[in-house]
Structures are given as C-alpha cells and as structure tokens.
C-alpha cells in the first residue's frame, strides 16, 4: 500500500457492520483489484492528514 517516507497504511476496513452475528468484510474491491485500492489508499491518507485525529480518551458518559 502507500509507503510515504514516514510510515504505512497497513489495511482499510471499509464500511460498518450492522450484522450482529459476524464480521462483515467488504469484498467489492476484489472486483476492481489492487489497482483500485492503490488509487483509493492515497486518498484515504490525504483525508487522515487533513483531519488529524487527537488521541483523546473515550467520550464521557452522558
């Protein structure tokens, strides 16, 4: 995947799993193959850098 000078995106788990029985794995990318993922990964990297997360503790109980 992207290998910027500083670090690497190892994996992207797409979507959310509403299924309460087992982990849902998005396999749509198997259709498009590695090329599509190679295009998507830098976009994800740019989004991560655009809105950098802060390592906050879990939000408090309301």
């Amino acid at each position: 995947m992207t290998r910027p000078a500083r670090g690497k995106i190892l994996a992207i788990k797409w979507g959310m799993n509403p299924n309460s029985s087992s982990l849902g794995i998005d396999v749509t990318f198997l259709l498009a193959g590695a090329t599509a993922l190679a295009i998507a990964t830098p976009v994800i990297g740019a989004l991560l850098r655009w809105r950098k997360p802060r390592p906050t503790p879990a939000p408090d109980a309301g």
């Binding site: 190892l10 979507g15 991560l48």
Partner: peptide, 24 residues
C-alpha cells in the same frame, strides 16, 4: 501502530507506528 476511524468514507484505517506518529 493505530486504528483511525474515518466518517466519510466510512472506514477503519490500520496504520503502522511511523504513520501514527505523523498523525498524532
């Protein structure tokens, strides 16, 4: 490293430590 959540597109992104340091 770290797992970072994106809202749009919805994804959990797994990054190694070096990458996590550049974000955090």
């Amino acid at each position: 490293g770290a797992i970072v959540q994106l809202v749009a597109p919805r994804a959990l992104v797994f990054v190694d430590r070096a990458y996590a340091r550049t974000l955090l």
